[in-house]
Every structure is written in C-alpha cells, then in structure tokens.
Write a protein that binds this DNA or RNA. Structure first.
Lengths: 333, 333
DNA sequence: ATGAAAGCGCTAACAT
DNA sequence: ATGTTAGCGCTTTCAT
C-alpha cells in the first residue's frame, strides 16, 4: 500500500495503460474503448485518485480560477454579486478566489499591479477609491472587468446599469404617485457628473420643477446612520417637508425612513421613500422598501463571459445591465 | 524584448545570478549580500516579474489556499464569516476559494469526498443537510473544520458557541425585563436535542415555568417570511399574546416583528423580541434587534489555525467561541 | 553566500 | 485508440 497521494502514474500502472490514456479518461476525451475506460475508472476509484490542480494548471497555462475583488464581502450588494459570480464561474468549469480591499487605496493598487496575475485567469474588480486613470494605466495584463459605478473610462470593460435612467425611473415613480415636493439624499456632491443625481433632475424636468434645494442633502457616507442624519436635518430645519424622497442607496433610504418614523412622520402616507440597489433587507423591513433592482446574475454572467474571451468585448467601456423598479410599501403601502 | 511573461530564469539572467538566488530573494531568505539583493530586485522590477503560483504550489506541495464552503454566500451570516475567513487567511499568507452548496446534498457529498483535495490545503465547511456520520466516514484526508451548529461528532474539529448557554442568556434577558409570558419561534421540532430550544427551557426552569405550548412555534424555514408566518399564527389563534419572544435566528425575529407591527402590536412595549446571530440588518432595522452575537473573527481565526496545524486540535470535537448579549430596541426600546 | 540539477504531477505534441 | 516524452515554472537538496 502506497502511503503518498496517488498520482496519474499510479493509476496508469494499476490499470496497465499509459499516463496519456488516464489523462484522456479524466478529461473526457471521446475516443476510448469501453474496456479501457472501465479499467481506468476502476483504478481511479480504487486508489481514490484526484488530479493535482496545481500541476494541471501549470501544464495547461491556465488557473481555472477567477478572482473577485470587492471592498467588503459582508456588504449585501457584494455578497449577492459574489454568489452569482461563483455560480457563473461554475458554468464554465471555474472556481472563484475572493479578496477584499476594504476600499484601501494601497490594496486596490496591488490588485491592478498584478498581485494575482499568475494565480487567476482574470479579475472581477469592484474598486472603491482608486481612479479610472490609474486603472487605465496599469501594466499588468490580467484580463479585468469592472462591475459597478465608479469606473468609466478605465480601459477595461465596465459592467453596470444606466444609473441615470434608473434614477429617473425611481423619481418618476414618486411623481406618478402624485407627489409634488420631491427631495433626494445622495452620496457625494449633487453635481451633474453624478448620474443618479442627473436622473433625478431629469425626471423633475420632465414634468416641471418640483424640488427645492433644501430637500437635496448629501449624506456623509452610504450607511444607514448617514441616511438617518441627512433626513433628520431635512426634518428639523423648520421648513415644510418634502412628500417624496429618492435615496441614492437602499441603506440611506432605510436610515431616512428610520428618522421619519422616529419623528412621528408616516411612510409612505406623509413621505414616500424609494431607494436604490435592492438589498435583501429591503424586502422584509417595515415598511418594506421600494427600490431599483439590478440584475446581478446578469452582471456575473457577463463578467465571466468577458473574462473567458478577453478582447472580444463588443464595447470596451460598457456592457449594459438590466434594471427594474420594485414597488413596495415605502411608496405604495 | 521578450514577449512572454517573465520567469525566474529571465530574472536570473538579467541579474547575472542563478535561479536559486532569485528564489531566495523572492522568499525572503536572510543571508543575501546587499549588492546581490539590489541587483535581483532591480531585475524583478524592470521585468515586472511575478511568480507563477501554480508552479510554486506544485513544487512546494501546498496550495497556499483554503476553501470556504457555505450554503449561500448572500446570507449575512455566511457573508460575515467569509469576510473574516479571508482576513484570517491573509494573516498566514493564504487566500480563500469560496464555494456554495445551496444546501444541496449531492454538492455537500462532493465536498467531503475530495472535490477540492488537490486544490486547497484545507476546507472550512458549513454543511446544511449532510449528516455528521457521513462526514465522519469520509475517505478524503483534506484537513477540515466545521463551523456552525449542525455538526457534532463528525470526526472533525467543530467551531461553535455553546448554543444552549446562549439561548438561555437571551431568554434570561427577557425574564430580567419582567416579561412573564414567554414564547419561542424555532427551527425544526422543539426537541431536547435542539440546544437553542433546550436553553430556552432551561431559562424558564431557572425561574419557574412561564411558557405555554401555544407560544412555541416551529417556523418552516429560516427566512423572514417564515418568522412572519409563525408569529401571525400566534397572534391569530385567539389566545392571549406572549409578552416576550425568543427567535432562534435574527431573520425569524425580523419577520416576527413585522407581523406584530402590522397587527398594531408594539415592539417592545407589548411584546419584546430577541433574535440570534447578530446579522448586520438587526443594527439598523426599526426597531433595532436585540440578539446574541457570536465572535465571527474568532471563528475564522480558529478555523485557519486548526487547518494550518491539522491534528494539533486540543479537542477534536469542539472549539468554543465567545458570544454575548446585544441589547437593542426590540427588547429595551 | 551562491550554483547545478533533480523533481513536483500533469498536459500536449508527436508518434504509432 | 494508445504510448512516449518534453516541457510548464518553481523549490530544494546537495555541492561549493
């Protein structure tokens, strides 16, 4: 009885065939006689043989693995993305290595400078702080796709929804509800370069202006507490309340709702609130949260597809992903 | 200019040294002359050299990678676990491959039968449906640790909190609040073999019986909808309401709260609700959720530690993890 | 402190 | 349909 792990050669010997034949069996090469196949299979089972993936990858020159790099895996959006990426990778026989940057610039630099280049066949990278230019100037040649919002013009395929159109759809929903005093809680300054802000303005322009500057607030971050703080300011500044609020993310929306409820303001009767992202909790919160849902499975599948055939990208800058309006209690309750 | 990716040999040539010396530099071997080190480093930078991990792993006989296998990555508990496992792996210079079983028995069988055996140095496996016995009888020798609840006596190190003590602590909290009519929404039948149920009973016994069977409900699953359905039944059966509910998971608790609020029952004034797991949403929900928090960082670190030194386990069955009571609005609001 | 050479286990020409 | 063999790029004794 051999004590070390069985190798291809051990299987070959036991089956009385060559390594090549065993390799053929393992890799599903079609032209093998039934008898040989059976003998090889028997030997494999008897020995409990499993191919050494390091060796296979070295010989093949491929890793059979993709890297997914996100800021933090325990943020629901990234967790959901990861789930779908793993599923999509399985469909092409690959596995997924996951890394977290924490949004740290140095960590993000390491990613584009090739930290994983000889370990994976491609990277799905969701950057947070690094700039598009720096990504565009990378020297590492590992195939790369960028899901998310902050990465136009980075010289790599960018997977995302049309944020402006989506924000417009969300705002339009508030208008269709008959709301006339609309506000927005966004992230970052409300510039024209921010597509979600642009979409919000556009929806207003469609029907005539209805927003007042005092209802436009910039949250300090993307967390629920940030949304709560922003909403509290809107409530406490002594001016009349808006009757509809579009929040740039679901977390902001949940925080905003919390601030409203704690001030005795009803949602959606007094103020309708809609978010953006469709995080799972929005479906079970009280009230449940209306939002924009992006098709995450589609993002994942497109990402893997692009990495499998690098260079084939139809459009090197944007692969558009579907989105839809999800109406729940926070606007329609 | 070479067009293919630079290898160790290319670096060696450019620096005028042997491959061994370059290898020494890369791996931080201490006894290298400053001059040599500088020349090698210069050559590495100039060529943009990165070691091929497949080759390294093959030569070393290790993968430098651990597998984390969970039912679903987008369930907050597993996402949080994954986050910490990745961090813990980094501390020992390893990376993490993540897989999902969906709780599917066949997928779980594949895991313990060695699907990853030659790809990773160890597995952190969170099984859902496979039995402890089947795990104990596995033939694959890949180091394995089992975080979670359902896997005592599986012949592999099991990482978890003392569920019974934790459930008792949660229930005790309700009692300390002065609640006298306590109920529980659990998963699976309320048998003595279920530690969370046992802990609940024990807390009651500590102070004299206060639970009635009609307040003990078994949810059909672990989702918010399941908790909502269970709570709705308790509300609508015409009997007096409990004034305190212990839910075996946070999702169940969030669903239960939702059912209460929709029936005009106040939380915590009329019914105090406490969950179990400390999922992130619980901190921002309205009302925020009291719960039992497990130390996930500790689970992850213990897991990696055990995988690094397989066989060293002090106790082959249970490495106990800390937990604590987190008091929020759903009980103390 | 550095070099030479033998694997690590598998794949893929090429041959038969 | 199956066998032979030369790598894949790195680590690691064993020398020096």
């Amino acid at each position: 009885m051999i004590t070390r792990k069985p190798r291809l050669e051990d299987v070959a010997q036991r089956a009385g065939v060559s390594m090549k034949t065993v390799s053929n069996v393992i890799n599903g090469y079609p032209h093998i006689s039934a008898k040989t196949l059976d003998r090889v299979q028997t030997a494999i089972d008897a020995l409990g043989y499993r191919p050494n993936l390091s060796a296979r990858n070295l010989a093949r020159g491929r890793a059979g693995m993709y890297a997914l790099i996100v800021p933090q895996l325990d943020r629901p959006y990234f967790a959901a993305l990861a789930r779908h990426v793993i599923d999509a990778a399985h469909e092409v026989g690959a596995v997924v290595l996951i890394e977290q940057t924490g949004g740290d610039l140095e960590a993000e630099r390491r990613v584009i400078s090739g930290e994983f280049s000889r370990r994976v066949d491609g990277m799905i990278f969701s950057p947070m702080t690094i700039g598009a230019e720096e990504i565009a100037n990378r020297s590492d040649a590992t195939p790369l796709v960028l899901p998310g919002e902050h990465v136009d013009q980075a010289g790599a395929p960018h997977l995302g929804i049309d944020n402006q159109a989506a924000a417009r759809l969300a705002t339009r929903h508030l208008i269709d509800l008959g709301r006339t005093r609309l506000g927005m809680i966004g992230v970052g300054r409300p510039r024209q370069s921010n597509p979600r802000y642009r979409g919000f303005r556009q929806a207003l322009t469609d029907v005539g202006p209805r927003a007042e500057p005092r209802w436009l607030r910039t949250a300090r971050g993307v967390s629920g507490a940030d949304g709560e703080a922003a909403m509290t300011k809107i409530i406490s500044d002594g001016n009349p309340l808006p009757d509809g609020i579009f929040c740039a993310t679901d977390w902001l929306a949940l925080g905003a709702i919390r601030a409203l409820l704690q001030n005795g303001i009803r949602v959606p009767e007094d103020v309708a609130v809609i978010g953006f992202d469709d995080i799972p909790y929005g479906a079970v919160s009280t009230p449940s949260l209306s939002t924009i849902a992006t098709n995450r499975g589609q993002i994942a599948q497109q990402a893997i597809r692009l990495l499998k055939a690098p260079g084939t990208e139809v459009d090197h800058d944007l692969a558009t992903i579907d989105f839809r309006l999800v109406i729940r209690e926070s606007t329609a309750g």
